[in-house]
Design a protein around this nucleic acid. Structure first.
Ligand code: FES
Ligand code: FES
Lengths: 145, 145
DNA sequence: CATATTTCGGATATGTATATCCGAAATATG
DNA sequence: CATATTTCGGATATACATATCCGAAATATG
């Protein structure tokens, strides 16, 4: 498993927000969790974390909800992953050694590291906005059906 | 996290067996778990699973233990992974869609799939015996210190 | 045969990610 | 100001991977 569930929901939620709140609209937890097919209270926790760290904005009260500012900077996918999953996803040794290093490599280090490093680089160059564009263009999907 | 703990221990244990039981010797659970720094009873479970599926051999009673037959065929790393972790490791969608497919891809499918597929191919071409050789040559390590 | 050793299999315990619940705070509306 | 709506934060529950325990079966040895 590459990402945690939390991280999967986080990525999907921010993509959805990015698509739906361009024009000052706001989405409630219920809206979002329904759209991305995720458990509502669990999604709420994640959205709160994202808001607390400034990845998204939030407003309380009637008509409130979560949104992304019009002039907000593009969100790098890898930044989301690092917030939610820490360095568990990419800097960990594939066989559980305390640390992954060239000096003291496990026997699958070369296979493992070269590919995880390249994937990491790719996610560092991808933004949520780019992914959202793929969805809008109908070339990718956030849910099953 | 790429592999489960069970899978990490399985790979390490079989590598260790491969290195230490070439000459008809047998290793007890205690020997193995100490060598690869894994919890003993948990390791026992994994070794039993591996033996039940024919990846390794076992003998009860005094002088017994786990071992690999002299004339045993090389063990493909990916086969171990599939036994222990199923297809969770490689055939799953990175964003949690029910299935990963070209027809209905999630927005990170292209990044994700092309690299996980290549890693999978590599693990299908690597054998435990090859990894054991790396350890013996001092170019790779199974434990930290 | 008696004993010690070791794997085997099932039941149980622990830890952690996942998921839920609830009361408080903020805020828009009338 | 009263009310409804919504996020916020902390506490709690659930599910599953991880880890342990224990009695039974097998077997080498004397
Ligand atoms: S040391 Fe194991 S993956 Fe780098
Ligand atoms: S559909 Fe998500 S990784 Fe292939």
């Amino acid at each position: 498993m590459m990402f945690s569930k939390s991280c999967e929901y986080a990525i999907k939620a921010v993509i959805h927000l990015c698509m739906e709140t361009r024009d000052g609209k706001r989405l409630s937890v219920a809206d979002i969790s329904e759209a991305i097919e995720s458990p509502e209270p669990f999604t709420a926790k994640i959205l709160q974390t994202l808001a607390r760290h400034g990845f998204i904005s939030s407003a309380k009260g009637p008509g409130g909800g979560f949104y992304i500012e019009k002039n907000a900077a593009p969100i790098v996918v890898m930044d989301l992953v690092e917030l939610i999953d820490g360095d568990q996803a990419f800097n960990r040794c594939g066989l559980g050694l305390k640390e992954c290093s060239e000096d003291h490599p496990c026997p699958i280090h070369n296979e493992f590291k070269s590919y995880s490093a390249r994937l990491k680089k790719l996610l560092e160059s991808k933004t949520i906005q780019q992914l959202a564009a793929e969805i809008k263009a109908g070339r990718a999907f956030l849910v099953n059906s």
